[in-house]
């Protein structure tokens, strides 16, 4: 198998950020509306909900949904 350096780097970065306990995508999704409202109200969501923050840093699919949800909610506030 041909492994590219880029794949190795991605793999090692994900191994590096691995924790014994991590939120699953489902648990992150359950908490996401609360996390995002903290963000929108200017509170420190990362500190209040570190496991959600870590999951979003690690999981590209959840992060993408989070970023677009943030945009959608901005439209609702306007």
């Amino acid at each position: 198998m041909k492994l590219s350096s880029e794949t190795i780097r991605k793999m090692m970065n994900s191994v590096k950020s691995t924790r014994e306990q991590e939120l699953s995508c489902g648990h992150c999704y359950d908490e996401l509306d609360i996390f995002i409202e903290l963000k929108l109200s200017g509170k420190n969501a990362d500190e209040a909900m570190p496991l959600v923050k870590e999951h979003l840093d690690r999981c590209a699919a959840c992060r993408e949904e989070y970023e677009f949800l943030l945009l959608a909610l901005e439209a609702m506030i306007q």
């Binding site: 999704y29 996401l32 509306d33 609360i34 995002i36 409202e37 949904e65 677009f68 949800l69 959608a72 909610l73 609702m76």
Partner: peptide, 14 residues
């Protein structure tokens, strides 16, 4: 624990 519309928008984005 959040606004209903925030939760509903989360479902819509998913």
């Amino acid at each position: 624990e959040s606004k209903f519309t925030t939760w509903a928008q989360k479902v819509a984005v998913r």
